[in-house]
Design a protein around this nucleic acid. Structure first.
Lengths: 191, 191
DNA sequence: CCTATTTCGATACGATACGTCTCGTATTAT
DNA sequence: ATAATACGAGACGTATCGTATCGAAATAGG
């Protein structure tokens, strides 16, 4: 065990370090354009300028490749809001989150879909990503709200509304939606 | 136009009325067991005891068949609430919806995941299933609420919270959650 | 310098599933 | 009786996944 400490003692030709970045970029681009089903491994290989066997040498299957490609930049950063009141803080936090989705939206939508399909990935995705976002929003809300009893369901409603629109695309994720959600949440949390 | 008034004047052999129910039952069962991708049309045909061409004679593709199977089930099993007040009606509608998820939850989770992966399926799933469920909830809410402005976002929050928990599994979809959501929605919609 | 080992791009290959097409049979209206 | 349609069954073409193989290139060890 623990043979990877020096990271390379193998005799043969080393792996090209540029392959992974090229493959991930090609995969994210294709995923955002046509969706998971329509992304073929041959298209990824062609767009990245590599052979198909190189893909299967590094990733066990198509899902693992695309999950890896989307996970590398899923760690988005949303600035901490400070408007002074509950509704304003929620609106600013959601607005920043929605703005980040302009670039990371397709990848995150794919990751959530994968979470719905794969129970083991679901656990990791919730623990490493989704639950941390909920905690960030919870901390903002709890600055203003004393009664913590209703905070949990409201957080699920806010993030749920975001994912619902991200997954189905039946409505925009824009500043107005952030304002409407913040207003509804503030009324729901009012003592 | 409007040829379906008498429902049948065509010469040939009529369609077997038992086929649709058998196909939908087989499709829902397989969908809950193995997931969208692993459900093959040949397996549905075999489980329902029909020929493959019979499936393609009635549904244009696999996606339409599975969406139809789940839509029929959802509309049949969620009763129209009549408690007399907004919060009670929402709670009863959500409670009935959550109860139906005990059996249909896995299948619906697969369908929503597929919607996130496949843009063309996303359109069909929203138009044929999700938007109809939103309309059903909207009609219930609009019996009590005059100001229609905030109804749309609140519907996205309610159904969003349901799908969020169904996909990630970080919290239960039980009667208490239905009550908490109904209470929050009623406060958000209060004039 | 020489050999073993591994990666590289390229491509042939088997397996699987969608959706179409055909076949012979059964059932209905005219 | 005839035309038209639905039925179960299954062959067929196309597409994609994932595997296997090939010659060339790159690296470590002797």
């Amino acid at each position: 065990m623990a043979k990877e400490e020096t990271s390379a003692k193998k005799p043969g030709r080393p792996r090209d370090p540029a392959v992974e970045a090229a493959v991930f970029a090609a995969a994210r681009s294709l995923l955002g354009e046509v969706g998971y089903d329509a992304v073929s491994m041959e298209a990824v290989a062609a767009a990245a300028g590599v052979g198909k066997q190189t893909l299967y040498r590094r990733w066990p299957n198509k899902a693992a490749l695309l999950v890896g490609a989307c996970l590398v930049d899923a760690t988005e950063r949303v600035a901490d809001p400070a408007t002074g009141n509950l509704e304003g803080d929620i609106e600013q936090f959601l607005g920043g989150t929605f703005a980040a989705l302009e670039t990371t939206g397709p990848g995150l939508r794919f990751l959530m879909s994968q979470a719905g399909l794969d129970p083991s990935f679901r656990e990791r995705f919730d623990a490493d990503f989704a639950s941390r976002r909920r905690d960030a929003l919870r901390e903002i809300i709890c600055r203003h709200v004393k009664a913590r009893r209703q905070v949990g369901p409201v957080i699920d409603m806010l993030y749920g509304a975001m994912w619902y629109r991200l997954l189905l695309g039946h409505g925009p994720l824009d500043a107005r939606f952030a304002r409407d959600l913040a207003a509804a949440a503030a009324r729901a949390l009012a003592a």
